[in-house]
């Protein structure tokens, strides 16, 4: 097991050699992830581990892939999607153009879910979905839109629970245990690398979703990310967080109105 001092050394070295700053990540979870990788790759010596991360770009890439938590689902928390579908999308639909940012999109399940709802509301053609992450590997999967077929049963149930009325299977083609989403759904998606720690605002959005990403940050880094979202959100735009995340601890709180009881906030100032 890696100790606290070693973890801090690792964080410093990664920053020095690769420019990625994990200094603002929640230590409890980062330590678990690093430990997991250390054991998975059967290291017995911390300096060897460190050397490999320093000197082998491929191994550093693997490290980023493995220490980020990429678990995601389509229509995860169906009640949240129901509110998007019934309360938020109808408001966005009145605009000539809809811009949405999925920050920390992982393998894209959230983005495809959104595209399905926009399509069903007949507004996908005038929407643009920007989706970003720091892990290049998950972005490749997201662009392909290929997911395990065995997940589709669960996703279909989530979809129905979120108020979906169509036959969910019409959104994918099944092949050799894989489900391919795409076609019209992915035409309006733009995927790119973006690091919430160090990169800035790149557009103005009507809706920003950052769900289950900031739980891996400490409070200061959370505040940085929230300010970035604030800078990137149009007035009266919406911010969506994960079910157990909150604006409560943020300085920005007073400028947002919570849309109860779900994890959506409207920028009012």
């Amino acid at each position: 097991m890696i100790d606290d001092r070693e973890l801090e050394i690792l964080i410093n070295e990664i920053f020095e050699y690769h420019g990625f700053d994990f200094g603002g990540y929640s230590r409890a979870s980062l330590k678990r992830r690093v430990d997991r990788l250390y054991n998975l790759d059967r290291f017995t010596n911390f300096s060897q581990f460190l050397m490999k991360i320093r000197e082998q770009p491929d191994y550093f890439k693997r490290m980023i892939e493995e220490i980020t938590v990429n678990v995601t689902e389509m229509f995860r928390d169906p009640q949240f999607y129901k509110v998007l579908r019934t309360e938020i999308i109808p408001v966005l639909a009145t605009k000539p153009f809809i811009r949405i940012w999925h920050a920390g999109c992982s393998t894209g399940e959230e983005v495809y879910s959104m595209a399905i709802m926009l399509k069903e509301a007949n507004v996908l053609h005038k929407s643009l979905l920007y989706a970003t992450d720091i892990n290049p590997l998950v972005l490749d999967t997201a662009k392909e839109g290929v997911f395990p077929l065995r997940m589709m049963q669960q996703y279909s149930e989530n979809y129905i629970a979120s108020g979906g009325k169509e036959d969910f299977s019409k959104y994918y083609t099944a092949n050799y245990g894989l489900a391919k989403l795409g076609g019209e759904l992915s035409e309006k998606m733009v995927y790119s690398l973006h690091n919430l720690v160090s990169d800035g605002s790149f557009n103005e959005f009507d809706l920003i979703l950052c769900r289950n990403v900031m739980i891996y940050f400490d409070k200061d880094l959370q505040e940085r990310a929230l300010n970035l979202f604030d800078d990137s959100l149009a007035k009266l735009g919406y911010l969506a967080l994960g079910t157990k995340e909150t604006l409560k601890f943020s300085q920005l709180k007073s400028r947002y109105q919570q849309i109860n009881p779900n994890k959506l906030w409207k920028k009012i100032k």
Binding site: S26, A28, Y216
Partner: peptide, 21 residues
């Protein structure tokens, strides 16, 4: 501990949530 998250402890007595496997 909420369902569907792992519950972790930080040194500053705050609780962190984690959606890993």
């Amino acid at each position: 501990a909420p369902s569907d998250y792992h519950l972790l402890f930080e040194k500053n007595s705050t609780l962190s949530l984690d959606t890993s496997e």
